[in-house]
Nucleic acid binder design. Sequence first.
DNA 1: GTGAAAGCGCTAACAG
DNA 2: CTGTTAGCGCTTTCAC
Lengths: 343, 343
Amino acid sequence: MSKEKEVTIYDIADKLNISIATVSRALKDDPVVNKKTKKKIFELAEELGYRSNHFARNLRIQRTDTIGVIVPRLNSYFMSTVIAGIENVANSEGYNLIISQSSESAEKEKMSAKTMFNSRVDGLLISLSYDTNDLSHFEQFSKRKIPVIFFDRCEENHSFSNVLIDNKNAAYEATKHMIEQGCKKIVHITASLKRNVYVDRFNGYRRALAENNIDFKDEYLIIGNLSLEAGTEAADTILKMDPLPDGVLVANDNCAIGCMLSLKQAGIRIPEDIAFVGFNNDPVSKVIEPNLTTINYPGYEMGEVAARNLINHLNGTHSIHSTNTIVLRSELIIRASSQRLSK
Amino acid sequence: MSKEKEVTIYDIADKLNISIATVSRALKDDPVVNKKTKKKIFELAEELGYRSNHFARNLRIQRTDTIGVIVPRLNSYFMSTVIAGIENVANSEGYNLIISQSSESAEKEKMSAKTMFNSRVDGLLISLSYDTNDLSHFEQFSKRKIPVIFFDRCEENHSFSNVLIDNKNAAYEATKHMIEQGCKKIVHITASLKRNVYVDRFNGYRRALAENNIDFKDEYLIIGNLSLEAGTEAADTILKMDPLPDGVLVANDNCAIGCMLSLKQAGIRIPEDIAFVGFNNDPVSKVIEPNLTTINYPGYEMGEVAARNLINHLNGTHSIHSTNTIVLRSELIIRASSQRLSK
DNA sequence: GTGAAAGCGCTAACAG
DNA sequence: CTGTTAGCGCTTTCAC
């Protein structure tokens, strides 16, 4: 059961009676090498089953052609869509991906960042966890001039680039729509207001209320982890309210659905008694009855744009210091869950 | 904008007037090093922002402590659950993960395998794409004695280990249940019969039919990619059948739901006209109305078991040649979509 | 066109 | 307990 010996450029050089330098050049398809020698080298490499040693190479050239990606969770429709977008761009540009999830924990996020850093990724793409408070674990990257780009869950006012949607406006439009449908007591279910996406949505919601002279009530803000279960719990809270609210804006579809299911079970009619609007345009929004009104979220594009941007940084197309914020277009998709007016 | 120089053990050794060997030992927390020197070294390392160079280390020790994972898709509930399980075990054992998706393409799967191989993963965990025909891209691993473990989408009769459920039995139970509920014309929607999971389910379905003296009809086998859209298309096919079938066994919940939605829209009553059973116990099975009967699939456990097994191989706990097949328990969860008998 | 040689940062004998 | 030293496999000057 002896491990087969790895083939190196030395083996090839030996057998061909040439120097390793020539082999190295030939393998990189350096035009300076004689065509015939090159051919011989390629053939022998193939025959011997040679594979380049990344470590030796990286050790030498100090690059890895690898991009790190840290997401809060892998198992959401939105995130997997984003990753597909990232992968598309990265692959076509010859970059590999290391993907890791923080499971919404600042602790795990820090660890992942450290792993990425030690793996010497050329750049980092990240969407923050719920409970990340400080960005100190990214300082190591900026110190080394390793570009970091945030997407979706970003932090404003710092020295990295951001890719996101206009959450405030999206929530504003969603809330306005509910008000137009006659809602006056609108609950907002969301996650930790530490994160830009949730603060922004909250602000958009408040702005819509204010513009329509509706007072915001503290008890109408329900904060959880936006899981299906959190939706169920929120439903319990809502059912205890007196009077019952007549509209619910939820910061993600999944949670909205958990909430709707519970309310339906309790005999609440949607949208007649309570209207619903979610976020993300998750496919499940078309499964629930009634179909869920939601904000269409350009996940795939967000992934592509973030990756493209990062790679531009790496190629020096952009200066590393030109940080910016890229805002992608989102839109309200109106479905049955919020249509209370006679059609 | 000069890149800060990387700190190496040489820098630490220089400043402390000791040898690099001692620094190297101290950093590994080798008990042989004097406690005081160790302390000094740790402090200076911290202060200087030293980070170990993985490449130099890997180049030297010929291991990476990294496990490769290739899945057909990241964006399914099942797969993300499996990955969570893998991650749990891998992290606690000090392994890193490189995750990649084949997008159900044999071509991309080959490329991913090559990347993994060149990244010198210590071991590989893989679930095959729909259209993978040959396993030649894994030979490079076995040649180098790099353990490869298949999960869920496996290939029988080869020299690697497998982790899966008893698909044949699961489909048998599901079909039997429908027959007991009075179904006699049962359609089976599935994916490419190249993959074990789908052949096995098909065979379980056939066995249940045979045992109950129901003839299998070719036209009752609908093959697609098991997406929501494939479900919609299958619904069209079903609606054209005369007489209409009275039961549908679908190889995944997502596709089942696409099909149910279309049929409902066409006025078909579920389960009265047509009963449904899916596979996976995806959360969406509890959103659809009526709730979907399904096979509960131990994704998290599957990930844990596969990773644990791989790591045992790596630690030499198991001989690399002791390949085996681990079968996890699954069960039928009966919900409204298949209950046709008076309750 | 090709080769010699230095060195990327680290680990692990071996010697003291 | 500490130091010396020889590579791991590769890229890249600098010669020729």
